[in-house]
């Protein structure tokens, strides 16, 4: 089985991605050694990763189920703004002590509940009404961000109490709080996906909903839960986002939706559903973050990051296809597997 091209057959492209990440890391360490390999750079990267990271996890969950969540940023903004308004009303800037901590706790709860509610709506539109996920979440994207605009009348909210700002800027044992939150989410969702019966069922529903129904799985319940999970993750991204910038705005982070899809796809999540791993996602986000930081140091403009991200997505996807083709050719020559009677397996993809 050991052939020089074995890595090409690796199913989710995880090794390939690891290689890409390592190459990017090595190249940048070589090009700008003093600054790339500095504590300061790693600190700043660890503040940038969590927001897009949380949104990407949310996107990946929806994509594994065979759908997509275009409303991710809408949910983040709407739930964050609901929480901010509560916060500003009961504990404006400068408030401290237990009271402020209590209000912050409640507002976090409000935000997560709102996220879950938004996710519930998405899930119901997809399962009960039967709108394709891409359209349902396109509609709710407009709806959620629209409601966020209505709530703020298009203005920005700012002046949060310090207890809230910790979420975006604080340190826990000298580790940035947002990074801790992201790590917790990676761990929890990773376990949920790979080591629970819910996650197990989710992958099956995403692979073949018909077979899942015939196997007795409750597709609708699984999808609704997935969109709710996605909603909660988006809400937490919203909290980190607003706490870090100390302001809440309805149209914050519009480009994050596409970036989240990009990260998920780069991490090996299949758009058609059924495949996607937390390890791939983390690698994808690391490689993209290394690139952006490196570019900033090389004095490329901030926008070149957008260019490279897009180009990288295309390159990796094309590489995956080429790899699969090569692998299949090799496998065909080795005729290791027995096909269906009549040899119709190829057409059933």
């Amino acid at each position: 089985m050991k052939t020089p091209l074995r890595f090409l057959r690796d199913e989710n492209g995880l090794w390939r991605l690891l290689l890409v990440t390592a190459v990017i890391f090595a190249t940048l360490s070589f090009l700008v050694p003093g600054r790339f390999l500095s504590v300061r750079n790693f600190a700043s990267m660890s503040f940038q990763i969590p927001e897009i990271g949380l949104l990407s996890i949310a996107m990946m969950a929806a994509m594994i189920s065979g759908g997509i969540d275009l409303s991710a940023v809408g949910i983040a903004n709407l739930s964050g703004i609901l929480a901010s308004q509560f916060l500003l009303h009961y504990a404006p800037e400068g408030a401290g002590g237990t009271w402020a901590a209590l209000v912050v706790a409640v507002s976090v709860g409000i935000s997560l509940a709102a996220g879950a509610g938004c996710g519930l709506l998405n899930g119901l539109l997809v399962t009960r009404v039967g709108i394709p996920p891409i359209l349902a979440t396109l509609g709710t994207m407009q709806l959620f961000s629209g409601l966020a605009i209505v709530l703020t009348r298009g203005t920005a909210l700012y002046g949060f109490p310090d207890a809230f700002l910790i979420l975006g800027n604080g340190y826990l044992f000298s580790v940035p709080v947002p990074l801790v939150l992201f790590a917790v989410a990676v761990l929890l969702v990773g376990v949920l996906l790979r080591r629970t019966s819910f996650g197990f069922s989710l992958y099956l529903v995403g692979t073949n909903p018909t077979a899942a129904r015939f196997a007795g799985l409750d597709n609708a319940a699984i999808l609704v839960k997935t969109y709710m999970l996605s909603g909660v993750l988006c809400a937490s991204a919203g909290l980190v986002m607003f706490a870090r910038t100390n302001s809440a705005k309805a149209d914050y982070g519009v480009s994050y939706t596409l970036q989240a899809i990009l990260v998920a796809v780069l991490g090996g999540t299949n758009v058609a559903g059924g495949f996607g791993s937390m390890a791939g996602l983390v690698l994808a986000i690391l490689s993209l973050q290394f690139l952006s930081s490196g570019f900033a140091m090389l004095r490329f403009s901030n926008f070149s990051k957008e260019f490279v991200w897009g180009a990288l997505l295309l390159a990796v996807m094309a590489l995956n296809v080429l790899g699969d083709r090569a692998a299949r050719k090799m496998q065909g020559r080795k005729n290791g597997t027995a096909p269906q009677a009549g040899g119709e397996t190829e057409e059933l993809r």
Binding site: F200, Y203, T207, T210, A212, G274, F275
Partner: peptide
């Protein structure tokens, strides 16, 4: 079997 019974790309165990 192929469309209603199996998750073709998933493992035997799954």
């Amino acid at each position: 079997r192929l469309t209603e019974g199996l998750f073709l790309s998933k493992s035997l165990a799954d």
